[in-house]
């Protein structure tokens, strides 16, 4: 089984996480033209090999993560938090 090293919770089985989508996808501004929304919502690079993708630690700390993984061998090269500004965000809301 794939195991993912969550920066908060440590190494956990993949079954605690849920796959999100390809990591390079960013959503355009709400008033952006239809084509850029079409690209973000519907189109995928679908890389054969190493790619960066998002996972959520659904049954753990619920963080969104950026995981670099090989889609053929399933080897994981790096894991980091997707939202690097989380500490500032928490300060703002508390």
């Amino acid at each position: 089984m794939i195991q993912i090293e969550c920066p908060f919770c440590g190494k956990r089985d993949q079954s605690e996480f849920s796959y999100g989508r390809e990591g390079q996808i960013t959503f355009p501004a709400l008033n952006a033209d239809e084509n850029s929304w079409y690209d973000a919502v519907f189109l995928r690079k679908n890389t054969y090999g190493r790619q960066i993708e998002t996972w959520q630690h659904t049954h753990g700390c619920r963080s969104w993560l950026l995981v670099e993984r090989d889609t053929v061998t399933h080897k994981i090269f790096s894991v980091k938090l997707a939202h690097t500004d989380w500490q500032e965000q928490i300060k703002k809301t508390t």
């Binding site: 089984m1 794939i2 089985d13 993949q14 079954s15 849920s18 796959y19 390809e22 679908n46 054969y48 993708e53 996972w55 889609t71 053929v72 061998t73 399933h74």
Partner: peptide
């Protein structure tokens, strides 16, 4: 298997 993959082998969950 719920995540993208080109590996022709399944996983345990």
């Amino acid at each position: 298997d719920w995540y993208k993959s080109y590996a022709q082998r399944g996983n345990l969950p």
